[in-house]
Design a protein around this nucleic acid. Structure first.
Length: 429
RNA sequence: GCGUCGGUGGUAGAGCGGUCAAUUACAACAGACUGUAAAUCUGUCGCCUUCGGGCUACGUAGGUUCAAAUCCUACCCGACGCA
């Protein structure tokens, strides 16, 4: 019944990995696939045409940011986020759950999505040591989260129901349950407490979503239209999307095998259209966590590893049964002058590139590499010209999408591990 | 020619007797960035170092002082004003 058909085309023998096709109201996503992040309804410095021309199938925007600016109701009235941002392909929105983390415990600290430590046991700390008096913009309650706007300081309260309401107003094809992304530095007791909250919020998100989908199905064209206005008079505005939206539940559980598996069972048994795997990881924990979870989640539904996007991590995820990834990495590092090449990342601001008239990555067929040299890129970045950010983003977006697309091809051609070995040998050398 | 003001590290520009190898910004040189608080942030930025410190530096040359980028004298250079 759902038009969110997910078809698995081929599996990696004896592994969890697979290649598939996920159908959405705005087109198919060939998986595994990389989702480019456009938090505020734009992939920074890149137009939708440039995204499409460089291999992007699907983009992801953010509930929290768009709710604050320009407002979800405005976007609804504009005809939905697809139309507003001129992205007509598959579109996702994150729930704001990551901001519970990034504007909460992680605010003003050296904690990020992936923590690199040599000894993971160092991560276990008392909550009090994390809470060192640095003011936070997000405070967690059992019913929801209070956010202090990072834009103007105003106070906002987001509950699971509110997050779903916003995401229905925004109208992406795939939306996420409201969750609490925890820091790997939290102790086990806190992880357990946060997990039960995330599970309760998942259920509430699902109920709210179903309720809204039901109304949508019965009166698809005139939902929330003022009675006196016929739908043809208000062709697109003033209504949530007339197409169904998919809701993905999010698995958490920190570094604990017990909690991760428990979460996969609890979330996996709920009637979600797919699943996100969330949390901030210690790098060395990531593969085990993903594996524990994907062994339990229903095989026939798509899985999205939230916020992960380093090439080596993408191989890990695909091998362990992840279908979708999103990550700010490729575009953020691009804006800061770091570019992917098959032989590893380069910082185009380094002195050695000033007179390097080669292209960024030999053999690359992206718009940037077809037309420009490392020397020119170096010049744009040194001169702080805007085009530098655009051309660098285009290159990194092309690179990462090509990489995942090649992984998919290798699964279909039964040589995933050969491809992985060959790529990583060059990339990590 | 006289007068006035000024000459500080790659640049601009603080400092105006000790706490000055010299605030700050920019440039330069590196690094970081993983569901975007991010076109951002961090470090280095005279030479040497066993990292304690040592040496050479604020136009040039002298001088005063326990101590000078800071005060005095002469000279050189620049800007402006008057001839």
């Amino acid at each position: 019944m759902s038009i969110f058909n997910f078809k698995i085309e081929k599996k990696i023998p004896n592994f969890l990995g697979r290649a598939g096709v996920l159908t959405t109201p705005h087109g198919e996503i060939l998986t595994p696939s990389f989702v480019v992040v456009g938090t505020k309804g734009t992939v920074k410095s890149v137009t939708p045409e440039q995204l499409i021309n460089n291999g992007v199938q699907v983009t992801l925007a953010n509930t929290y940011h768009l709710y604050l600016q320009p407002g979800d109701e405005l976007i609804r009235d504009a005809g939905g986020l697809h139309k507003f941002m001129n992205w007509n392909g598959p579109l996702m929105t994150d729930s704001g759950g990551f901001q519970v983390f990034s504007l909460g415990v992680a605010y003003g600290k050296e904690i990020s999505k992936v923590v690199t430590v040599t000894d993971p046991s160092l991560l276990i700390s008392e909550r009090s040591s994390v809470d060192d008096g640095v003011p936070r913009l997000a405070t967690i309650g059992n019913d929801g989260v209070s956010f202090r706007s990072h834009i103007d300081g105003s106070l906002h309260y987001i509950t699971p129901e509110k997050s779903i309401e916003i995401q229905h107003n925004l109208g992406a094809d795939i939306i996420f349950a409201f969750d609490e992304c925890t820091s790997p530095t939290e102790n086990n007791r806190y992880q357990e407490e946060a997990l039960s909250r995330t599970h309760a919020w998942a259920k509430r998100s699902l109920i709210e979503h179903k309720k809204r989908e039901l109304i949508k199905d019965t009166t698809p064209a005139i939902l929330e239209v003022q009675p006196q206005l016929a739908s043809e008079v208000v062709p697109l505005g003033f209504r949530t999307p007339s197409f169904p939206q998919a809701l993905f539940g999010i698995v958490q559980g920190g570094r604990s095998e017990i909690l991760r598996k428990k979460s996969a069972e609890v979330i996996g048994s709920m009637d979600f259209d797919g699943f996100g795997i969330g949390g901030s990881f210690a790098k060395e924990d990531m593969s085990t966590a993903v594996k524990w979870v994907n062994e339990i989640l229903p095989e026939e539904k798509p899985r999205h590893l939230l916020g992960i996007g380093e090439p080596e991590d993408l191989f890990m995820g695909v091998e362990n049964g992840v279908d979708l990834f999103d990550c700010v990495g490729p575009t953020r590092i691009a804006r800061n002058g770091t570019l992917f090449t098959k032989n590893g990342k380069i910082n185009i601001l380094n002195a050695k590139f000033v007179k390097d008239f080669n292209i960024i990555d030999s053999g690359c067929e992206c718009y940037t590499c077809i037309n420009y040299t490392r020397s020119y890129m170096s010049h744009l970045f040194r001169a702080k010209e805007m085009l530098g950010a655009t051309l660098a983003s285009i290159h990194n977006i092309y690179f990462i999408n090509k990489l995942v697309s090649d992984m998919r091809k290798s699964i279909l051609e039964d040589n995933f591990f050969d491809f992985k070995e060959e790529f990583l040998k060059n990339y990590l050398s």
